[in-house]
Amino acid sequence: MLKRSQTPADPHAAKAVRRAIDADDDSDAAVLARVAAGDRVAFETLYRRYFPRLHRFLERMTRRPHLVEEALNDTMLVVWRKAASFTAQSQVSTWVFAIAYRKALKAMQRFDEPVADDDDDEESAGGMAQRQSEDHAQSPFPAPDAALLQQQLRAALQVAVARMSVEHRAVIELTYYHGCPYGEIADIMGCPVDTVKTRMFHARRRLRNLIGPRREDLP
């Protein structure tokens, strides 16, 4: 993996990049280097590699399934076009997700949805999710208690996260699902690390309020 401290003046860095465009190297950086040289096969490799993560991320960001593929392909189109301008200062995944985040924000501009969080809290998402689960519990094939509990909590989480702002959803998704360090999240969202920490703090508080008493039952 390429390090952020590399510069053209650094012979080790140039050597690392030359090594990266070796066809036998299967790292993201090596594949992206081949994409920069116009290798369509390498691009398809990168596409398939990132598709599940990008799909999930964009689905959580936009919450509109019909927008996901469009935003995903827009993201990968930028990757194809701008692969040569990728800076070795960041990881490939950070660069790709930064593009995807901006595409998600752009897609959301079509809708009147706030990017930043607000404090409206009309109804507990936990309550909504519980009603949904109660509806499900009337099924003639009731699930075991543990599975039902987990299902209720997942439903509560899904509803709660959906009611959060795009920025809060992004820090939650990138931290909990994609396992990103806060520094990478700052790179992806284009903001200082302190802003990421603050957003996460408020996102957790909001999640706590939305889930309500169900939070203690999380498996």
Partner: peptide, 9 residues
């Protein structure tokens, strides 16, 4: 200056 793949090429 940042190191791009194009520069590396």
């Amino acid at each position: 200056p940042s190191l791009s793949f194009q520069a590396a090429l």
